[in-house]
Design a protein around this nucleic acid. Sequence first.
DNA 1: CTCTTATTGTTAGGAGTCCTAATTATAGGG
DNA 2: CCCTATAATTAGGACTCCTAACAATAAGAG
Lengths: 224, 224
Amino acid sequence: MDHAAEPDPVLIRLREGFERVALVLRADLWAAAGGAGLNPAQAQVLALLAARPAGLRPKAIAAHLAVSAPSMADTLSALERKQLLQRTPDPADARAVIARLTEEGGALGRTLASATSHVMAALARLSADEQADLLLTQIKLIRTLQRAGAIPLQRMCVSCRHFRPNAHAGEAQPHHCAFVNAPIGTRDLRLDCGEHEAADPEVQAATWTSFADGSPPLQAQAET
Amino acid sequence: MDHAAEPDPVLIRLREGFERVALVLRADLWAAAGGAGLNPAQAQVLALLAARPAGLRPKAIAAHLAVSAPSMADTLSALERKQLLQRTPDPADARAVIARLTEEGGALGRTLASATSHVMAALARLSADEQADLLLTQIKLIRTLQRAGAIPLQRMCVSCRHFRPNAHAGEAQPHHCAFVNAPIGTRDLRLDCGEHEAADPEVQAATWTSFADGSPPLQAQAET
DNA sequence: CTCTTATTGTTAGGAGTCCTAATTATAGGG
DNA sequence: CCCTATAATTAGGACTCCTAACAATAAGAG
């Protein structure tokens, strides 16, 4: 049994730090949602689906927000009652449905997704370098959590077919997005890009190595 | 003021990053609490009070966990029913009560506060430098949130009477804690120290300036 | 082609969080 | 002493959130 091994204290402190921020995020969410007659769970669904015009299955939404499928069914019913969301059968699978926002729901979701908050005000007071470093650290954490199965697949640049790490090594915007065909800096890296297309696993691994090392791009990144 | 001004996109991305981590934290909390027959709200109270042997007033607990006082009364009653917590009158104020954990509650709270989690496993994969930088960034964010009134006063080293920033400038552990009379490094900085005693506001401001600048300790400095 | 097993979504039932508003009691200043 | 502020709780209600059970469809094995 490995129950005697106390974790490194710094890990507990870092978790505590995230917990403090999370509490503020939740309070911010209550404030933003409350003005629209919603609660945090409903607001989270709206914000998530606002970035997914094609809709998502209830099970996927539940996985993204880390609640059970029945809990999500409750929340989806509440949103449907408020005319902010619509459930339609999935033509590809007669068991499944697809949840999409109505026009009104989409507008509200976009508002919520870009609403200011105490946390963003605090983040704004960091230097540009600190912001970039923090984003980079978050990407590393999210990638680890994703590989551990703690969260579903995210639509991050670093796993995208269109991403070319260090294509412009040494410059302020060292990376490149082949979709928009433009250089991008660390601060521009998306955590949830609407144009994301997952690269093949081997390509992803190579991309990550190049990205994390700061090494020049590997050759032969064929656009399958 | 800031009317109609869209926030800097990087701020939204950083907030999204915190949101992803917060979802995992919540899932981890369910997992840790569920094993003990608790829910996240109860587990948070237990973890908070485990670090406060002297107890805390319900209103203060509610403020720390960012819920309303009536919500906290619900949760405290649930914990009292489970014999994990006790409410006693506050001798200093006949209106108030003090909530303390029972022995059993304290043991459970300490277990929860140091329980491992997916988030900590992910944090463990960062380099030591990244961990230190992240902790530093968190401290800055928490301080800003505190000053904005978004969270109650925290028991962080940087606001403590015993803290001497850069007392050993240039060394691996540049700071000093006069309480334990030992040098401390960035990784050792507490977010919630049981021995914390708030320094005077002017001293705090000077301490912060010295800390953030990396400059040697000075007396009597003006704030930002 | 049929039988089994897995998957998707929902309902059922219940505990408990979370809110606002109102209530009780005490504290503290003019 | 009165009047306002504060601490905590109760009242009432909406809703999240869980597990378990259910119905329907999909997918694979024989």
